[in-house]
Nucleic acid binder design. Structure first.
Lengths: 291, 291
DNA sequence: GAGTGGTCTAGACCACTGT
DNA sequence: CAGTGGTCTAGACCACTCC
């Protein structure tokens, strides 16, 4: 059909890397196990030290192994994934309606729940800024209109590594009725953003999450303490009120090796008569479909 | 506060890469613009050719630039993202209830809509396999129980590059009542999976999407024609019937540079009395919160 | 054909890990 | 201290692009 998979000859780095990758996938190299040293690799494949280096470098950028000086590289142990479910949107809304004592007891909602609150240094920065092109388009307001910008950040006090990061934008016109909402020292606010919006009469009715992923830059990688080859998941959340008007957007990043985003979509029940009709004719109708 | 950002001295590769990255972020290097050649870089930074190489290699693995032989590297032009919205879950369900003529006209649902159907080679492979550990856990059935495995794939006929890929598992006990469902030649099935399930009396009521991302392996990268530094988004979709029983799981991969996953979460309306109460007391209550 | 980046080699120094 | 991987250099060959 096509020219063979090896037009001339696969680079040695790729051949080495693929061989190791297959050993990992077959389980010959268990998570945590040590790889051959560079010297051993360059001997076994009779190539230069730097070519063996290139092979393990490739595996590193793919997140399959970890490497460090003075120690043979080892197969990566996949960390636990923290689950962030869209069901929390409804939970948060329910919580926003409860009395304050109850809200405070459950903690505030923007916080990363992966570790105890005492173990992270939480910070929030509020400011009123002019809406840029991007934010304006998402919120459906004029470019340059004033927006409340809230930046939430949690870092591990021991390592200074980022644990969570998000930026939220709300049209200032919506929230200036309650001056308390402009004061960052009121964070963490029991009940979260949805309760804050309720204090100015805004009820969130729909939340849209837009998810993509990309590789971190070098500085992002070290701020998050990301191993090589771990993407950042980017999630933009837009909240709409009962008039389908966007009232808040929130941009958040999550390290892909520790995060799973879960979205729950309830479907409307179908008309029982229509279901019955399909069950009756389904068999024949389906077969007729074949061309 | 902390030791200065440069404990000893940053590697030259990083310094070069960071300088170029900043030029890109500031806009000095527009998307599509050419970078300095390796010779120019090694001259400007008075380092070896290979060090300059290392710098652009880093930028490549971060997806910021594209490189190829014989041509200076250039700033990556971000491709258009195809949006896959969870709203299609409801659309698909509505469609499943329509007459066949209508269903056929709208095309089938598993197909990638980013390009015309005529321009892709679609293939599906059906088989009955024993459920493995992973699938069993997700479907809540015994390990080894028979499941219908459906693999959907679309490739670009010109380049042999993958356009979409997904694997679906359904407990065989659910679908064997309709033999037509076991025949892959019935694909594409008008109305999609939800209509197929309706023919055996199963109505999907909830869909849960679990999203993560990871870097592709070398073979995945070339199958999808992924530029360096582009993660794969992995989405596991689990469909539940009215008894909250999982009836189908589907694992799909999407190239992160061309895909945006959108999830719409409708929230239940709150009790008007509760809202009014918060609006009344909100201002004072919020201020009291300050510690 | 001149110039480009991709791959590879050989050899060097350094930072770090073990014993 | 010996051994490891990370970084860097100098030089080579090849595949490719552009003129």
């Amino acid at each position: 059909m096509h020219p063979e998979r090896t037009p001339v000859e696969a680079p040695i780095q790729l051949k080495i890397a693929d061989a190791i990758r297959m050993q990992i996938e077959r389980g010959d190299l268990a998570p945590g196990a040590s790889l051959p040293t560079l010297n051993e690799l360059s001997d076994q494949w009779s190539c230069s030290l730097n070519s063996a280096r290139g092979a393990v470098a490739l595996l590193r950028t793919q997140g399959l192994i970890t490497a460090g000086r003075g120690k043979a590289p080892s197969v990566r142990i996949p960390p636990r994934r923290a689950v962030r479910s869209s069901e929390r949107h409804q939970v948060e809304k329910d919580l926003a309606l409860r009395p304050e004592a109850e809200r405070a007891a459950l903690g505030e909602a923007e916080t990363n729940h992966a570790m105890s609150i005492a173990e992270q240094r939480f910070s929030s920065r509020y400011s009123v800024v002019a809406s840029d092109q991007d934010v304006s388009a998402a919120l459906g307001i004029a470019v340059g209109a004033p927006v409340l910008r809230r930046q939430f950040e949690a870092v591990d006090p021991r390592t200074d590594h980022q644990l969570s990061y998000s930026v939220s934008h709300i049209p200032l016109a919506l929230v200036e009725a309650n001056p308390a909402l402009l004061d960052e020292t009121n964070e963490p606010w029991p009940g979260g953003t949805q309760h804050q919006l309720l204090t100015v009469g805004v009820e969130v009715m729909t939340i849209v999450d837009e998810v993509t992923a990309r590789m971190p830059t070098t500085v992002e990688a070290q701020r998050w303490d990301l191993p090589d080859g771990v993407p950042l998941i980017f999630c933009r959340r837009v909240s709409f009120d009962d008039a389908a008007r966007p009232v808040e957007i929130s941009d958040a990043y999550y390290p892909a090796d520790r995060t799973e985003l879960r979205f729950v979509t309830p479907l409307r029940p179908a008309d029982p008569d229509a279901i019955a009709a399909i069950a009756r004719e389904g068999h024949t109708s389906a077969v007729v479909t074949t061309r």
